[in-house]
Amino acid sequence: MKHNECKRKKGISQRSIYLLLFAALVYLVAAYLGFFAPDADGKTVSVFVAVATAMVAVALVRAWQENRGEVLVDERTRLVQRVAVGYSWWFSYVLIAILLLANQFGGIRFEAENALSLVFFAMIASLIFFRFYLSRKEDLE
């Protein structure tokens, strides 16, 4: 693949459009939960609305940058992303192992929902952290 395949012509990329469409879907789910699911509490609906709003904000910023002709993705950012995903995977793997050991021998009882939530957020947070760290690091080899 050519390194500058993603070289921007001015205009909004498909990626940003998909993100906006996905945000619209999340808004629809929130609306459904809010209006047609009496069992759903307000907190759940708020989380869905917050997530969708964050996605819209990210998509709009990206679209604005793309419209200015900025290159958002190149071979180095792709390399950073690949390495960050790898590091994040190992981080999550170790975290799960620690949770298992703590549950087995440490006397700390985790409920499945708590453990899954922890891993879910740890994966995202570690990916963001490693991407930030590696994008400022020197050679990645």
Binding site: G69, V71, D74, E75, R76, T77
Partner: peptide, 12 residues
């Protein structure tokens, strides 16, 4: 812009 990468890549 000429080579289609981010400015940071040129810096590095």
């Amino acid at each position: 812009r000429k080579v289609g990468v981010r400015r940071e890549t040129i810096v590095f």
